[in-house]
Write a protein that binds this DNA or RNA. Structure first.
Length: 259
DNA sequence: ATGCCCTATCGTATAGGA
């Protein structure tokens, strides 16, 4: 089977491209992030016409996660255990469901904004909660992957050039330690191959010709338990989806499984 | 060609993204 994760940066603005991609890539399950629309506004009919059921948790302008599947969706769960709030709100950043033989989690980890911003400790707290939340699924017999936009480059090789990276977040030791703690729960980073160039980046900023210049980041990850990881036959980043008019700034991460 | 930022919002600018 084929499982994917993709930060689509608005479901409404991206709907045609998402549906077209489902038709060509034919994933059995796709985790989507940054819906930027309310749950009630998710076009479930359009997905149904394409052969997919969709479970979504959206809250309007920001965030929002979904899972679309053509092998069924069961046991849907919103959020993670002890999920921290931001400014008093529990944000739509995690959705977990069982789709056929796999259990997947669609994740949108907080950006962090700046190491001096309150969003940064929020990001670390979210990851800490995630590590605890994932432990049971990580140790279980069912193939499980927590996949999505982690907003962390696991290593310097996951940045086109750390010295040119303009942000203060995504590359810090604190963030990488927090990511390592999630992996320590029993999950491994399914490292994809790139369709072009050496590094399998998943994000390129819209500005400054970053995509043509391949100034990218690998921040969309699939952290898999042993049952999931052992079944992986291929993994790649579909950078072709970053091309052209109306593209998201992220490309899909696609994983093929012998399941 | 990969091509010079994008999205949603009570908007005619602003916040957020990474």
């Amino acid at each position: 089977m084929r499982v994917a994760t993709w930060n689509i940066n608005s479901l409404k603005a991206r709907l045609d491209r998402v549906l077209a991609w489902l038709e060509t890539a034919r994933p059995d399950v796709v985790c989507l992030q940054e819906l930027k629309c309310a749950t009630a506004d998710v076009p479930a009919d359009a997905f149904r016409d394409a052969g997919y059921e969709i479970a979504a948790w959206g809250s309007g302008r920001w965030n929002g996660v979904a899972i679309a599947s053509r092998v069924g969706i069961a046991d849907v769960r919103q959020g993670i255990a002890s999920q921290p709030d931001f400014a008093g709100a529990i944000e739509a950043r995690a959705l977990t469901a069982t789709c056929g033989p796999v259990r997947v989690q669609s994740l949108y980890v907080p950006n962090g904004r700046d190491t001096a911003d309150p969003h940064f400790p929020y990001k670390l707290a979210f990851l800490q909660a995630l590590a605890a939340d994932a432990a049971a699924d990580a140790a279980g017999p069912v193939p499980f992957a927590a996949m999505g936009d982690y907003n962390i480059c696991p290593t310097d090789d996951d940045v086109w050039d750390v010295d040119e990276w303009p942000g203060t977040t995504h590359i810090t030791t604190d963030e990488r330690d927090a990511l390592a703690a999630v992996q320590a729960a029993g999950l491994v980073d399914v490292h994809p191959r790139a369709l072009k160039y050496d590094q399998p980046f998943t994000f390129w900023d819209y500005r400054n010709l970053d995509f043509p210049k391949n100034r990218g980041l690998r921040i969309d990850l699939a952290l898999a338990n042993p049952a999931f990881a052992d079944a992986v036959t291929d993994a790649y980043v579909d950078r072709n989806e970053r091309k052209g008019k109306g593209a998201s700034d992220h490309a899909p991460l696609v994983i093929d499984l012998d399941l």
